[in-house]
C-alpha cells in the first residue's frame, strides 16, 4: 500500500490562521454590541461558519487531503443543514 505524501504546514501559516481566528472572535463579540434584531443570530452564525471552515481546512489540514475527505465532510454538513430545514418545516408552520 502506498504511503501518502505528507504535507507539512509551516509554523507561520498556523500563526497566521490563529490571528485570523482571534480577529473573527473579536469581531463576533463586537458585533453583538449592536442590535441587528433578527439578523444578530445570522451574523453570529455566519462568522462561526467561516471560523469552522478555516479550522477544518488549515488546522485539520483537509485542504491538502484527498478529495474523498472533502466530499464526506461536505456531505455531513449538508445533512445537518437538511435536517434543520425539514424540522423547521414543522416548527415554523405550526
Amino acid at each position: 500500500m502506498e504511503q501518502e505524501h505528507q504535507h507539512i504546514t509551516s509554523y507561520r501559516t498556523y500563526a497566521t490562521v490563529l490571528a485570523v481566528l482571534l480577529f473573527l472572535t473579536a469581531l463576533t463579540v463586537y458585533v453583538t454590541w449592536f442590535d441587528f434584531e433578527a439578523l444578530t443570530i445570522v451574523v453570529a452564525m455566519s462568522i462561526a461558519c467561516v471560523k469552522v471552515i478555516i479550522v477544518i481546512s488549515y488546522f485539520m489540514h483537509v485542504k491538502h487531503d484527498k478529495l474523498v475527505f472533502k466530499l464526506m465532510i461536505g456531505m455531513v454538513f449538508l445533512l445537518i443543514l437538511v435536517i434543520f430545514l425539514i424540522l423547521f418545516s414543522d416548527y415554523l408552520f405550526r
Binding site: 425539514i86 418545516s89 414543522d90 416548527y91 415554523l92 408552520f93 405550526r94
Partner: peptide, 9 residues
C-alpha cells in the same frame, strides 16, 4: 406536526 411538514414527509 404542522400540515406543511406532514405534506413534506
Amino acid at each position: 406536526m404542522s400540515t406543511t411538514a406532514r405534506w413534506f414527509f
